[in-house]
Nucleic acid binder design. Structure first.
Lengths: 224, 224
DNA sequence: TACTTGTAGATTGTCGACAATTAATTGCCA
DNA sequence: TGGCAATTAATTGTCGACAATCTACAAGTA
């Protein structure tokens, strides 16, 4: 089970709903176009419909679900066009963050250590004897960790927020592509290049490394 | 009164709340840091608290209000740092849109006509004998119209959404700057340069014109 | 006076129920 | 049998009420 069994306990139930539905999407229980029944979620979580509706509203604003008034809430369907749009916006924002990091000297030596540690973990996972599907999931988590760390180093809360939403949408779209567990090792080691050029303050090569790294999203899309 | 007295009637009451609070912000009734009482809004609009909460959630996601759990909802306070961040993200996205328009030949001759008509209106307003405050408000509306038209021509729904939110935040921040009604004529004619370079497909000059045009946001910020 | 503690008021978070609307089913008729 | 109309069921939108929590004020003590 993917759901972090530990604590689903927060300030308000709304965030519980958000996490719950996100987990159900990533675990494949909810698929694109599925109808999310408010009462069903409420019953499942043992709460009333009010916080469920709030959670759905939040997910709507993140583009994860689509609300059709008086019809219902549905898991967002991404067309190829949509994915290209999301992909390009991510690239635009993350390129911009790389510029900030380099131009404003935001990265310290210890930060590179942190990044390298994350990538080392990724490589270890890629080489492990785990089942391929599990490896892909675990590496995806580390990938998220890697990029989020970089985003946060920019010090721009808004950019982090935007990119977090975008990242999830990309993950969603990739779920329906079974051929996405291929070159896990390459995906992992890709990150070393980003670290290297970031350290050398070589903006152009750094951007190119990023572009090559995340381009499998785009390739995956065009396969469909 | 700014509130469009006509129709506050939509699919659901939630959007009524959103519009209502946005109007109250732009009209200066709500100021940065103000506490937005759910029950007060509900009473004022003659509805219950449920749709009010939904509306507030939407505004929170747009960065317009800030929700402190179990404390309340407050009109977002923008620091100088915040504004710089918002400003830079707008520039990044709108630059990107200009590139799309030029590279992908998205602008037709009739589109330029539309833009010129909008700017003509702006100049007319700037030269009118209206009170300065009203002129500023009217020109701001036309400015929004101008840029939104350009955004939409990119065909990227997500970029339009992001920029719309950002635009409102910039307007909010400017409200507290009384010295913002100075060179209305220059602000209006600025747009002709953008049209000109967009027509000539001169990306660099177009970007520069945009930057110069919207830089008064930034200058305004540093005045404080 | 300054500080802590306890209480009262106000506000948010959650709930269950009802109204309005949509979708599905059934029954009727050609 | 096929298509249309009326009824039924299911789902969302909204409401008022209650519970949990926070804030402000007041009383009491050192």
């Amino acid at each position: 089970m993917l759901i972090s069994s530990s604590t689903y306990q927060r300030d308000n139930l709304c965030s519980v709903v958000v996490d719950y539905i996100k987990e159900l999407i990533l675990s494949g229980t909810y698929r694109a176009g599925d109808h999310v029944l408010e009462s069903e979620v409420a019953l499942k979580l043992g709460i009333s419909r009010a916080p469920v509706r709030e959670g759905l509203k939040e997910l709507e604003k993140e583009g994860i679900v689509t609300v059709l008034p008086r019809k219902g809430t549905f898991i967002t369907k991404f067309t190829l066009e949509d994915m290209k749009e999301v992909f390009d916006i991510r690239l635009l924002l993350e390129d911009n963050i790389l510029e900030i990091l380099i131009n404003e000297n935001k990265m310290m030596e210890e930060d590179f250590d942190t990044l390298e540690k994350i990538v080392n973990d990724m490589v270890k996972i890629a080489n492990s004897k785990e089942e391929n599907m599990n490896k892909a999931i675990m590496i995806n988590m580390k990938d998220m960790e890697f990029h989020k760390f970089i985003w946060q180093k920019s010090g721009s809360r808004r950019r982090v927020e935007l990119l977090s939403g975008i990242f999830f949408q990309l993950r969603m779209a990739m779920l329906y592509d079974t051929n996405r567990t291929g070159d896990l090792f390459a995906t992992a080691t890709d990150h070393y290049a980003i670290i290297k050029y970031l350290r050398n303050k070589d903006i152009d090569k750094c951007k190119r490394a990023l572009r090559e790294h995340i381009s499998f999203y785009k390739e995956g899309m065009s396969q469909k």
